[in-house]
Nucleic acid binder design. Structure first.
Ligand code: SF4
Ligand code: SF4
Lengths: 155, 155
DNA sequence: TACATCGTGGATATATGATGTCCAAATTAA
DNA sequence: TTAATTTGGACATCATATATCCACGATGTA
């Protein structure tokens, strides 16, 4: 019941791209550095986002990434499924497809599937735009000062 | 975003105990065998349920386990927290307590915490009784035949 | 008291998956 | 062609979930 680092990376990247949305592409290197994501790991995450049709990628010099949809069209559910695959709260079948002995008569499986459905609805109702909107009002300032001690001046 | 085997074991055990609720204690061995849970692993799970105040344990001959509350008083949230600890969807602090650089200005963290809250509400609204009620109507029959091929006669 | 029964506690192993690294190939601009 | 950049996959590393083991503590019975 946890947001993996991979998902965290993906969401951060998308909000970052969402704010740059002037049609210009952004280098993977820039994303990695600004978001403190290991470059070679980010590469893997980006591939998944591209394959899912969420971001657009371009090769070569002047290449990079940009959003393929507007931030308000990208839901958390899409992002989740891009990097984690289909959400499944209970795994009633093992890797070789053999079902749990209790599957045919299990009240628990039903319950988890209902919860899963509700959770999917929630994830589907939240967009990258929502996340951008929830950032504090002076984001650029902080982003550009995070090499220093990131101290709060709220006295 | 997954129900661990441990949690699955815990819920199965509690529904099993819930159905035996005549005040009588049940041996760990019986639970393990009927629920196909490794005995020595179940031991660990039971300890957590006892510590959480959900089940009652008794030493010695005639010992065993029984529910400390009625099935309708035990919520999934309680069970989750007993075996997994506090639900936290995002981990914005590493093990040594150092916070993520973005914590002070992160829209994502807010969003996950709201989702977390909703999920906790859902988990808190579902009880072991609900799960028992959702089992199919001939549970004993199936439970006692699972040494055979568990074939369905629904033609 | 002595003994058998059964849960407790913690140390330790094993398996699985998440995270991170590396390098060669593909694509494109200049 | 050459440099810049993403792509793809193999591989290494690390963390955690799962499982096992064994000595100990508590309780009933005789
Ligand atoms: S016990 Fe029920 S929920 Fe758990 S794995 Fe088997 S069928 Fe699925
Ligand atoms: S980026 Fe935001 S959500 Fe992710 S860890 Fe940092 S603060 Fe938490």
């Amino acid at each position: 019941m946890i947001v993996s680092k991979t998902l965290d990376y993906a969401v951060r990247t998308l909000t970052y791209l969402g704010k740059r949305q002037s049609g210009k592409t952004v280098l993977m290197k820039e994303i990695a550095e600004s978001q403190k994501i290991p470059l070679s790991y980010l590469a893997k995450v980006m591939r998944q986002l591209v394959k899912a049709g969420i971001v657009f990628s371009e090769y070569g010099p002047n290449g990079g990434y940009s959003l393929k949809k507007t931030p308000s069209e990208i839901t958390l559910r899409q992002v989740y499924e891009a990097v984690e695959g289909t959400l499944r709260m209970v795994e009633c079948f093992d890797v070789s497809g053999i079902s749990c002995v209790f599957t045919s008569c299990c009240g628990q499986a039903d319950v988890w599937q209902e919860i899963e459905k509700k959770l999917l609805d929630i994830l589907g109702s939240i967009t990258i735009q929502d996340i951008i909107a929830r950032e504090c009002v002076y984001p650029e300032k902080l982003l550009f000062t995070n090499k220093s001690e990131n101290k709060h001046a709220n006295s």
